[in-house]
Design a protein around this nucleic acid. Structure first.
Lengths: 217, 217
DNA sequence: TTTAATTACGAACATACGTTTTTATACCAG
DNA sequence: CTGGTATAAAAACGTATGTTCGTAATTAAA
């Protein structure tokens, strides 16, 4: 009926974030009750408020921390690379790798945007735009230097992001393809088309040997 | 305190479906209360139950009806077309057009899957797989007849679907690009790459004249 | 050792939820 | 006109929700 042995602030907060992430991912923010969250952490519902201010703040914190890290890691991944083609390649590899590694965080960032209060929503949308503009910038640089031909850099960027992000809805670590294979396939699709006509094969490496087997969803 | 003048079953049901679609789209299924829904329809919460059986059934019905129509319209759009390239082109045009026209229904079908009870969930996932397999089939046909080169038809199909579906998150009817322009750009990206190197321009039409202007989200 | 800050419990609060029931009116078929 | 059915209101039910509060026990600092 009081503070328990071994209770520890930072440790509990970490457990709340972890359980919250899992529950929001699987049930959605609205459907996750704080009593359920507390029980997964091993405390009572009221005790959550020693660590969070409101349920909404927990959601925002989870999303915000993730977006900040996403942007920071992207900068690291692109650091020192100046050639547009190399930067595009690095962007794709980073994006696919990150989205496979953090599929739950990524999913929440997309699916729970509408559960954010408007002030929080604006902040997150701003961060997402920053990320999008990195890719658009790469494409614009490539076009400006004559290295790329892009019908519309904005549409292309949105298309690339949507295509790559989709990976975290179907990728299975134990599945048919490794992370590296997936990255390679996606890079090829971005650069040479998702579907190539026979007249455009010149200059490409041999088609991969993987047969077009349908893997279960 | 009883039946009101002009009340009419089918008309009310239609209003419920319409308001429900809008509310679920903007707030999410869990966040939409039946009292709010009823008030938008202009009736009391309890009166909803003259038309629906449960809240869950309303969601399932909205999704199911949409999936059925999606599949039917796709069949119509592909009817009579046999060449794989033409079928792919028709698929892209259909998918983009439909997703622009029905963005709310489409969004719900993706974002509210997890709010479906397991039996309903299985049904909807089955329908979605039917749709995915249509595209995979087109790609397989093209590969079999030597018309396409595809690194991995399953991954390519998922990539195409994700890319195209993304259109309904940013497309604005009054925006810079028309539906036809968007369809054209996406078709080009599927066939020739989202980003082409300069060595691959031969045989393509002139790049579009649209400057890479960033449009607001 | 004393003191203050942490941390959790347990109970409670006000409110909101999906749903059911009862009742009364409007519509429609005979 | 009459009788049955369709439709809605109104009130209520039981439960669940996010959050607050007072209290007690643990830990860390003095």
């Amino acid at each position: 009926m009081a503070r328990t042995v071994g209770s520890n602030g930072p440790k509990t907060m970490e457990a709340i974030r972890k359980a919250g992430l899992r529950l929001i991912y699987s049930q959605g923010y609205e459907a996750m009750s704080l009593r359920r969250l507390a029980s997964e952490v091993g405390i009572q519902a009221g005790s959550l408020y020693n660590h969070i201010t409101t349920k909404q703040d927990l959601l925002f914190d989870l999303i915000k921390v993730h977006m900040d890290e996403l942007l920071e890691r992207l900068d690291q991944a692109l650091d020192g690379i100046s050639d547009p083609e190399d930067r595009l390649q690095a962007f794709i590899a980073f994006h696919v790798g990150y989205h496979i590694a953090r599929k739950r965080e990524v999913f929440i960032c997309y699916s729970e945007l509408r559960s954010l209060e408007s002030k929080n929503y604006e902040i997150v949308v701003g961060l997402r735009q920053q990320y999008e503009r990195k890719l658009i910038g790469i494409l614009d640089d490539g076009v400006a230097s004559g290295r790329f031909t892009v019908a519309d850099t904005t549409v292309a960027a949105y298309g690339i992001l949507a295509m790559l992000t989709g990976v975290c809805t179907w990728f299975k670590p134990a599945g048919r393809l490794s992370k590296e294979e997936v990255t390679g396939i996606y890079t090829g699709m971005v650069r040479h088309g998702l579907v190539r006509g026979v007249d455009q094969r010149a200059g490409l490496g041999a088609p991969t040997e993987s047969p077009p087997v349908l893997q279960g969803s």
